[in-house]
Amino acid sequence: MSKDVETVLDTSKELRSKDEFCFSCVPDKDCFTQCCYDLTLMLMPYDIYRLKKALGMSSKEFLERYTSVHVGPGTGIPVVTVKMEGPYLKCPFLEEGKGCTVYNDRPGACRAYPLARIAQRSHETGEIDEYYYVVRESDCRGFKDCKSWTVEEWVQHEGLSEYNEFNDLFSELIHAKNKSGVGQLNADQIEMFYMGCYDIDSFREFFLEGPNLDRYMEDEATIQKLQEDELELLKYGIRWVKKKLFEGGSCIACGLS
Rank of each mutant, 00 (worst) to 15 (best):
E20M: 11
F21S: 01
S24W: 00
D28F: 07
C31G: 07
C31D: 14
F32T: 03
T33V: 07
Q34N: 15
L39Q: 14
T40R: 13
L43Q: 01
D47K: 05
D47P: 04
R50M: 08
R50K: 15
K53R: 14
G56C: 10
M57L: 15
S58F: 05
S58Y: 06
S58V: 08
K60W: 06
L63G: 12
R65T: 15
T67C: 15
V69N: 06
G72D: 14
P73W: 04
G74D: 04
T75P: 01
G76N: 11
G76F: 09
V82T: 09
M84S: 05
Y88F: 12
L89A: 13
K90D: 03
F93V: 01
F93E: 01
L94F: 02
L94R: 03
G97F: 01
G97N: 01
K98P: 08
G99I: 08
V102H: 07
D105M: 11
D105L: 02
R106P: 01
R106T: 00
A109F: 07
A109V: 15
C110E: 12
L115F: 02
A116D: 05
R117E: 09
A119R: 14
A119Y: 09
A119W: 07
R121Y: 03
H123N: 10
T125Y: 03
G126P: 08
G126C: 10
Y131A: 04
Y131I: 04
Y131V: 04
Y133V: 02
Y133C: 04
Y133D: 00
V134C: 00
V135W: 12
V135D: 10
V135P: 08
S138C: 08
G142S: 02
F143R: 05
K144A: 13
K144S: 13
D145Y: 09
W149V: 04
